[in-house]
C-alpha cells in the first residue's frame, strides 16, 4: 500500500510542478472567477457565454456596471451576472474590462452555411430597408470591431449574438437604440446576420 501512497504523492508533485509553470498573469478575479465561464484569456468554448477577448473596454465597463446595478435584466444576466457582478468595485470593473480588452480576439472559422453568411453580410453592410433595420457596420465598424461603448461583434458565438438580438427585440435586454433597430427583424434575418458575424 506504500506504493499506492507514493504514487499519489508523486502525481501530486508532478501536478504542483506543472502548475508553477505560469504564463502571463491575468488579474486575480479574471483568473479565479470570470475564466470559469468565459474561458482562459476570455475565449469561451460554450456559446452560452460571450467571448470577451478583444472586446471594447468601455462596453465591458458599462455592462458590468449594468449587471451590478441590475439595470440589464435579460434572463442570462439575472441567472449569472447579477450575482457575480454584485460585489465588484469600480476599480475591479475597470481592471477586468481593460484586461479583456487587451487580449487578442479570436476570428471565426469559415461559415458552415456560406449562402446564409452572405445574406448576413448584406444585412450587416446595407441593412434591411423594408424592415427599418439600419446597416450594423455604421455603428459597429466595417470589421465589426466596435468602438467605445459599442461592442465588438466579430468572432462572437453566433448562438450568443442570436439570443441578444432576440432579447433586444422582446426588450428583455435594455437598449433603446437596439430595440428600434431590430424591432422588425425576423428570426431568419437574425440567423443570417449572426452566422456572418461569427465567421469574422
Amino acid at each position: 500500500m506504500k506504493k499506492v501512497f507514493l504514487a499519489a504523492v508523486g502525481l501530486a508533485t508532478v501536478l504542483a510542478h506543472a502548475a508553477s509553470a505560469a504564463t502571463e498573469s491575468p488579474p486575480k478575479l479574471a483568473r479565479e472567477v470570470c475564466s470559469k465561464c468565459h474561458g482562459p484569456e476570455g475565449i469561451s468554448q460554450s456559446p452560452l457565454f460571450p467571448r470577451l477577448a478583444g472586446q471594447q473596454a468601455e462596453y465591458l465597463d458599462q455592462q458590468l456596471h449594468q449587471f451590478r446595478d441590475r439595470s440589464r435584466g435579460d434572463p442570462h444576466a439575472q441567472a449569472y451576472m447579477w450575482g457575480v457582478a454584485g460585489p465588484l468595485t469600480d476599480a475591479q470593473i475597470k481592471s477586468i474590462s481593460e484586461y479583456y480588452a487587451s487580449r487578442k480576439p479570436v476570428h471565426g472559422a469559415a461559415p458552415s452555411d456560406p449562402a446564409l453568411a452572405a445574406k448576413g453580410k448584406e444585412i450587416f453592410f446595407n441593412g434591411l430597408e423594408a424592415r427599418n433595420v439600419p446597416a450594423c457596420a455604421g455603428c459597429h465598424g466595417e470589421q465589426a470591431e466596435g468602438q467605445g461603448a459599442i461592442p465588438r461583434l466579430a468572432g462572437q458565438h453566433a448562438d450568443y449574438l442570436y439570443r441578444q438580438l432576440r432579447d433586444f427585440r422582446s426588450e428583455l435586454r435594455e437598449n433603446e437604440t437596439m430595440h428600434a433597430n431590430v424591432q422588425s427583424m425576423t428570426d431568419d434575418d437574425a440567423a443570417a446576420l449572426t452566422e456572418y458575424l461569427a465567421s469574422q
Partner: peptide, 13 residues
C-alpha cells in the same frame, strides 16, 4: 484545489 496561472491545469485533493 488550485490551478496554474494560465488556467490550463487544475489540480486538487
Amino acid at each position: 484545489a488550485d490551478q496554474s496561472q494560465s488556467g490550463d491545469f487544475l489540480y486538487g485533493l
